[in-house]
Design a protein around this nucleic acid. Structure first.
Length: 487
RNA sequence: CGGGGUGUGGCGCAGUCCGGUAGCGCACCUGCUUUGGGAGCAGGGUGUCGGAGGUUCAAAUCCUCUCACCCCGACCA
């Protein structure tokens, strides 16, 4: 554990981020460029996230499966848009067993092609539908520039892939998953998000349309935190994913795919943490409470430890806790270390508490100390965890709202994107050229196009349809879209 | 791939201008004293100075080439 200070956010935001990742021992650089080692502290967060999300995925009727890492190179070429989007960033295996392969194998950048190849075999009748499959896997994309957790050459994710009988069902699925991601981000990660549709420029290669959830980081930049694609029949046609309907007619399936990745750990860090280190929302923390016993003499040590032992009974099964009884370190050191690691609550228990049959409970986010009575422990811990979770979300939402504004003129927009940093609701005519131009001139892109009253979902906190003029070309526009610089 | 920066013990750095054979802080190990916000004292171990070549009696230091990483931009979850 390094005891050097973390670079303050004000001074250098990306260095601050990297300091947290490395000093809290979440991840480390690998000998291979662009790849990272996820260390136990970081992997524990991933496991926590995975457990919760996996439960949600299964509760909505999906089942897990596992498809292979290697994909025949020809597969990726079968869908025109898809190959264009992914071919440049694919890793290709040309040799195996000491011999050149007859057909090179791609390391999956995503699994649409290999999964749908199998779906074509498994689906024959409308009775086989819907097919609702998810997989937890690693994927590889050869990125130009990488950043720990946010963009690495290899990353972990879940990818859901479904096949349906009708376009309506597929759209329903796409929306239902997006809503699930929103709930996960806001309720579990305490990260507020805007939901909506991606512009043509930003959508997934091969999809009819893409929906996403967009979060704001503490530097005002956007992070795409989850995506859900309605694939229409694009892949079904390319891979012959067909079924016979009630009238014995052959129909192409309607498909969806959706995913979130280890990038979410980056979102968690950049949304909540401070200059002392990581701040984890209780529902994402592998350990929610750390107990630090304090003693001087050996007699005190055994008295305090048996008192702690009595206290822990109240916590069993209620909260994930850890007792830090390391002998060689002083309490102050332990406090700093657990704060760096983002553990939401700390319980200090020393001779004075023992005497008064109490303890001191400390919040990670505010570092506020509260003296509690021994018999109140379970209640106080539960209450603090709930409050902390709620406060983190509220603080993140307030920050986002304070850095989001409506802008009407391109001049003001340029100044805002240059001098401030945040989201802007501004009019857009809908043409990709206009988005490209704004992106080139300001670095800001359309993060999301809010849902309209006719859509299945709504975008909370978004301005409703309204007449206006496109930022770039001044043509009439019927709604504002969300702009921002992004990761 | 362009622009900027950094490579010296596990980590953070000084030393480089002006060549003389490597040092500081933290961490680590041992012992004693300590323990309610990053403990003190004493003792101890730790380096092919990113790599290769060159100049020189002598290179961390000068020259040439090279590699890696970080930051900013172009590609993206």
């Amino acid at each position: 554990m390094s005891q050097d200070a973390i670079t303050p956010r004000e001074k250098d935001f990306s260095q601050w981020y990297l300091d947290i990742v490395t000093k809290a021992e979440l991840a480390d650089y690998s000998p291979v460029r662009g790849c990272m080692v996820i260390r136990p502290n970081g992997y524990a967060i991933w496991e926590r996230l995975q457990r919760t999300l996996d439960g949600m995925i299964k509760a909505s009727g999906h089942r897990n499966a596992y498809f292979p890492l290697f994909i025949p190179e020809s597969f990726i070429r079968k869908e025109a848009e898809h190959v264009e989007g992914f071919a440049p960033e694919c890793a290709v295996v040309t040799h195996g067993g000491g011999k050149q392969l007859e057909e090179p194998l791609m390391v999956r950048p995503t699994s649409e092609t290999i999964m749908y190849h199998m779906y074509a075999k498994w689906i024959q009748s409308y009775r086989d539908l819907p097919l609702l499959i998810n997989q937890w896997a690693n994927v590889v994309r050869w990125e130009m520039r990488t950043r720990l957790f946010l963009r690495t050459t290899e990353f972990l994710w879940q990818e859901g892939h479904t096949a349906h009988a009708t376009a309506e069902e597929a759209e329903e699925e796409t929306c239902q998953i997006l809503e699930m991601y929103r709930r996960f981000a806001e309720e579990e990660m305490a990260v507020p998000v805007f939901m909506g549709r991606k512009s043509e420029n930003e959508k997934f290669a091969g999809a009819l349309h893409t929906y996403s959830i967009e979060a704001m980081m503490q530097d005002g930049k956007a992070l795409q935190a989850g995506t859900s694609h309605n694939l229409g029949q694009n892949f079904a046609r390319a891979f012959e994913v067909k079924y016979q309907d009630e009238n014995q007619a052959w129909q192409y399936c309607w498909q969806t795919s959706w995913g979130v990745s280890t990038r979410l750990i980056g979102a968690l860090i950049m949304a909540h943490s401070d200059d002392r280190g990581l701040v984890l929302p209780p529902r994402m923390a592998p350990t929610q409470l750390v107990i630090v016993p304090i003693w001087s003499s050996d007699e005190q040590k055994s008295a305090v430890l048996s008192y702690v032992d009595a206290l822990r009974g109240q916590l069993e099964g209620q909260v994930d806790y850890h007792i830090d009884d390391r002998d060689q370190l002083r309490p102050g050191w332990k406090y700093a270390e657990w704060e760096l690691r983002g553990i939401p609550l700390r319980l200090e228990v020393g001779p004075r508490d023992l005497e008064k049959r109490g303890a001191v409970l400390v919040r990670r986010d505010t570092r506020e100390k509260q003296t509690i009575a021994a018999e109140q422990l379970a209640k106080a811990v539960a209450a603090s965890l709930t409050t902390l979770q709620r406060d983190l979300f509220a603080r993140a939402r307030d920050f986002r709202d304070a850095h989001t504004r409506s802008i009407d003129t391109y001049e003001e927009f340029r100044r805002y994107m240059r001098e401030a940093s945040g989201f802007a609701w501004a009019h857009w005519c809908g043409r990709p050229e206009c988005e490209t131009r704004v992106a080139q001139e300001t670095k800001a892109t359309i993060r999301t196009v809010p849902f309209r009253p006719s859509d299945r979902l709504t975008t909370p906190d978004a301005p409703g349809p309204e007449e206006g003029h496109c930022l770039a070309c001044a043509a009439t526009s019927s709604q504002r879209v969300l702009w921002g610089k992004s990761y």
